[in-house]
Amino acid sequence: MYSELITSINSAVTNANATLVTPGEGEIGDSSVLINPESVLEVMKFLKPLYNALQVISGVDYTEYIEVCYFLAHFDPAAPKDVMIKTRLKDRVAPKLDSICSVYLAANWQERECYDMFGVSFNNHPDHRRILCPDDWEGWPLRKDYKVQEVYRGMKVNPENKMNRDDQLFEDNKQKGNEADLIAWALSKGL
């Protein structure tokens, strides 16, 4: 589907290493184009005339690598098209990518969100801050190995008395098959 695009990317940008990613055996969904992380900026510069809008930058943590997906679309009713460009970052300690803010203005906030949630740093970003979490928050929330910090500015995060454990208690009792306990628990909750 994207074979022409891939050939043109490879011929325009050296070491872009663009390859097609298709759903494998027993898999389903959309295909995408995988590129080399070092060549993101050049590839985006090349794609800008073909796709006039960057829709979203989405990160996925596959534990062995972090994947950053760029969804590009061409907003032209006569020739609508879209593509998903992916890149994989092996380094989990300090993953780095080139910022594409100079190419698409939309990248500014999208890259900030990717940094906020996955800790991917973007070189030459004009305003490299967290966006949804507080500036002094620790850790990268959407990574699979994320542990919530215990104390934030002297306040306990998720204090025991504010956690809703009702669902968990209900499931535990149900699994035990202890019906009398379940009824007693429900009565104590006033249900």
Partner: peptide
Amino acid sequence: VPKGETYTRTECPRGE
């Protein structure tokens, strides 16, 4: 849901 990924978009009142 089978293994894989998708990007679906629709026209919401405020945009895509």
